[in-house]
Design a protein around this nucleic acid. Structure first.
Length: 270
DNA sequence: CTTTAAACCTGCTGGC
DNA sequence: TGCCAGCAGGTTTAAA
C-alpha cells in the first residue's frame, strides 16, 4: 500500500509469485482495458517492479501495466482460480497456472507500450526513487539545491513526488525528526551540515522502513502499524502526539500541513 | 512561483 | 445491529 517502501515490498511479493510465468488469463474491470484480456493470454510476466508509489507489471509483448494504489488499493497473491470472499471490489486479475495476482479497489490503472516514446504520464513527472540503491546523498543534496526545489518549504517538498518519488506522509515526519529539522524550513536556508543530515535521512529512513517490510509487516492496514512486532518499522514521532520525545523527553506535537498530519519534536527540530 | 483548500478515488472505525 | 460522519499512509485541480 501507501508509501514507497510498502509498494516496493508489494512488487517483491508479486514478482516472487508470478514473475517469469505465462498468463493463463487476464481480466480487467475497466472497459478501456478489456481489449488487453485476449492479447495477454499466453504472454509471460517479465518483471514486476515499483517506481515511487507506482507498481509496474511488464509483459513480454512490449506492454506494461501501471497501477497506483492511492490510499486503498490492495494487491493479493492467491492460488489459481481462487477468489477470496471480500467486500473489496476486484479490478484486475492476472492468472498463471499456479497462482493469480489480484488488484482490489484501485481505480488508477493503465496499460501502455513500454517501447513507446511516451511513458505513462504519471511516471514522466516522478523524481528519483528514494529507494533506488544508486541514489546517493550527494545526488539528494544537489537536488535540494536545485532551484526548482530550494525555495519551497520542506513540509510540502517532502511530499512532492517530482522531488523524490516514494516519499509519503509518515516518512515525511520521520525524516525531518531524524534530520532534526523543522518542516517550515526551506532547503535554501539550511546550512551545509543541516543539508547533509537531511539528505542522509531522506535515504536512510525509507531504506530502513523497506528493510523492516514497511509499516504493515503484520499484513493489514491501520492498527497493525501500532502493534510492536519485533521486525516492524518503529515510529519516533508519527502517531505519537503527547508521548515524550525519545531524545529530550519533550511531548511530541501534531500539526497539519497540506491537509496531512505532521508530527514533530518542538525541541529537537529546528 | 508557492501555498492552500477542496474534490475524488474507496475502505475502515467509532459514535449514536 | 445499522447507519453515518469522519478519517486515512494519495493525487489532482483550482483558487489565493
Amino acid at each position: 500500500m501507501p508509501e514507497g517502501p510498502e509498494i516496493r515490498r508489494t512488487a517483491d511479493r508479486l514478482a516472487e509469485a508470478v514473475a517469469g510465468r505465462a498468463l493463463a488469463s487476464a481480466w480487467f474491470v475497466f472497459p478501456a482495458l478489456k481489449r488487453h484480456e485476449r492479447t495477454l493470454r499466453g504472454r509471460t510476466i517479465e518483471a514486476i517492479s515499483a517506481r515511487g508509489k507506482a507498481l509496474l507489471v511488464r509483459f513480454d509483448h512490449g506492454w506494461t501495466l501501471y497501477s497506483h494504489n492511492q490510499l486503498y488499493g490492495v494487491w493479493r497473491v492467491v492460488a489459481a482460480g481462487e477468489r477470496p470472499d471480500t467486500a473489496r471490489s476486484l479490478r484486475v486479475a492476472l492468472e498463471t497456472a499456479e497462482r493469480a495476482i489480484l488488484l482490489y479497489s484501485a481505480s488508477d490503472v493503465a496499460m501502455w507500450r513500454t517501447d513507446a516514446l511516451t511513458e505513462h504520464p504519471f511516471l514522466t513527472r516522478l523524481g528519483p526513487d528514494v529507494l533506488d540503491p544508486k541514489l546517493d546523498a550527494d545526488a539528494v543534496e544537489s537536488r535540494l539545491q536545485d532551484r526548482r526545489f530550494a525555495g519551497r518549504r520542506l513540509a510540502a517538498l517532502l511530499l512532492d513526488q517530482r522531488f523524490l518519488a516514494g516519499m509519503g506522509n509518515y516518512l515525511r515526519s520521520e525524516v525531518l525528526f531524524e534530520a532534526g529539522i523543522d518542516a517550515a524550513r526551506r532547503p535554501a536556508d539550511l546550512d551545509v551540515g543541516e543539508r547533509r543530515r537531511l539528505a542522509r535521512a531522506l535515504l536512510a529512513v525509507p531504506a530502513r522502513s523497506y528493510r523492516a517490510r514497511g509499516i504493515e509487516a503484520a499484513a493489514g492496514m491501520r492498527a497493525d502499524y501500532l502493534t510492536d512486532t519485533p521486525d516492524a518499522f518503529r515510529f519516533h514521532v508519527f502517531d505519537r502526539e503527547g508521548l515524550p520525545c525519545e531524545h529530550c523527553g519533550t511531548p511530541i506535537r501534531r500539526s497539519e500541513s497540506g491537509g496531512r498530519r505532521l508530527y514533530f519534536c518542538p525541541r529537537c527540530q529546528r
